[in-house]
Design a protein around this nucleic acid. Structure first.
Length: 364
DNA sequence: GCCTTTTGACCTTCC
DNA sequence: GGGAAGGTCAAAAGG
């Protein structure tokens, strides 16, 4: 077997494993409300799913079978870290966290490396920024939006990784103190049907939010991954088209994940213009309120914290530019039937719908 | 006028 | 105890 075939085989195994994991996760969630252990298992599966996609994408980008990852490996600055992440410090793919001289470890509940540091579902207020020694990027300090009102002491720091200037930025997020505020998000508009990670009731469920994001990420990664990364494109043939509608058999399709996992019904197809290395693809979207079956999408420079079009939502997500907003539901996620906004984690696929239909909640 | 972010100064902690 | 660096505060700026 050639190294190329080996690479494809390993990538395939990785993705099949991810698919299987997703099915197990779905089965777990369909059992009903999760108890503590169930939530733990769901989170673990979700994190593993994130890892699977990160590793898969890394394989796609590197095209180097010798750097394929073992189970439990994480993405680091230098490539894939074959070590299994520790249980007490969940890391969903990122650089080694080296202890600093001034480590004030008191109250640190978790650390993670993520490309979407603001998609944890909580609302934060930035209260400081500091240049850190030997760090290219400043560290940002956030506290819970309800720190004053409800005495919630939860905080987090977001440190952009030094190596993340070129590719998609990665951030080290350190959480300090648990939330005690029972956050509820006030819906911006009744018609929207739900805020980010928030059901119509307005009740906030961080576990579900996290899962929601990961499911979305997984799905989009699959969809977008169907298009050949530019670096691996072997010919000048037109880029493959991904269609997710069960009624539309044309093009590459991920039926099991999209149809079963995501429970799509009637769908239209929305254009997503992805940044390099992905060729333009089509991804499924919900039935639009407008007659158009194609929603315009605008690419955003992921290295620019200021999105085109002005300020970000009130939730202080100053770096949440790598989000994909969907004007209406239902979408990919089985939990998102009424949600209209999702933060997703799709490496290199940074896009935002520019459709300013009535469902656009924040940029109006 | 309100709300959020920015930023310099000050405080705290560690070596 | 002093210096250095991280963490926090709060006034100013901007949308």
């Amino acid at each position: 077997m050639t190294s190329g075939q080996e690479a494809i085989e390993k990538l395939s195994q990785e993705l099949v494993g991810g698919h299987d994991l997703n099915a197990r996760l779905l089965a777990l969630l369909r059992r009903g409300p999760l108890d503590g252990r169930g939530q733990e298992a769901a989170v673990a599966m979700s994190q593993e799913l994130s890892r699977v996609f990160m590793v898969s994408l890394f394989m796609l980008r590197s095209g180097d079978s010798s750097r394929m990852a073992a189970p439990g490996a994480t993405i680091t600055e230098g490539g894939i870290d074959q070590r299994t992440p520790t249980n007490d410090i969940p890391i969903c793919g990122g650089e080694e966290v080296t202890p600093t001289r001034k480590g004030r470890g008191n109250g640190v509940t978790s650390k993670e490396i993520t490309a979407s540091p603001h998609s944890d579902g909580y609302q934060w207020r930035k209260y400081g920024q500091k240049n850190i020694q030997n760090r290219k990027f400043a560290r940002c300090y956030y506290k819970c939006m309800f720190s004053h009102d409800r005495g919630c002491r939860a905080k987090k720091t977001v440190q952009q990784q030094d190596s993340s200037g070129g590719r998609r930025p990665m951030f080290q997020v350190t959480y300090v103190n648990e939330h005690k505020c029972q956050q509820e998000v006030v819906l911006p508009r009744e018609s929207i049907g739900g805020n980010k990670h928030t059901a119509r009731s307005g009740h906030f469920d961080p576990q579900r939010a996290k899962l929601d994001d990961d499911v979305m990420a997984s799905c989009l990664a699959m969809v977008i991954g169907g298009a050949a990364p530019a670096g691996l494109s072997s010919s000048s043939s037109p880029p493959p088209v991904v269609r997710a509608s069960p009624s539309d058999p044309v093009g590459w399709h991920t039926p099991s994940l999209l149809d079963v996992g995501m429970g799509l019904g009637e769908t239209t197809v929305a254009e997503i213009s992805c940044r390099s290395p992905f060729a333009p693809v089509k991804a499924p979207a919900a039935p639009s309120s407008s007659s158009s079956s194609s929603l315009p999408v605008e690419a955003i420079n992921s290295s620019d914290p200021t999105p085109a079009g002005g300020r970000l939502p009130r939730s202080t997500d100053a770096m949440a530019m790598d989000e994909i907003y969907f004007p209406c539901g239902p979408l990919f996620s089985p939990f998102a039937a009424q949600s209209s906004i999702h933060s997703v984690d799709v490496p290199m696929a940074v896009a935002r719908f520019t459709d300013t239909d009535s469902a656009w909640p924040y940029y109006s």
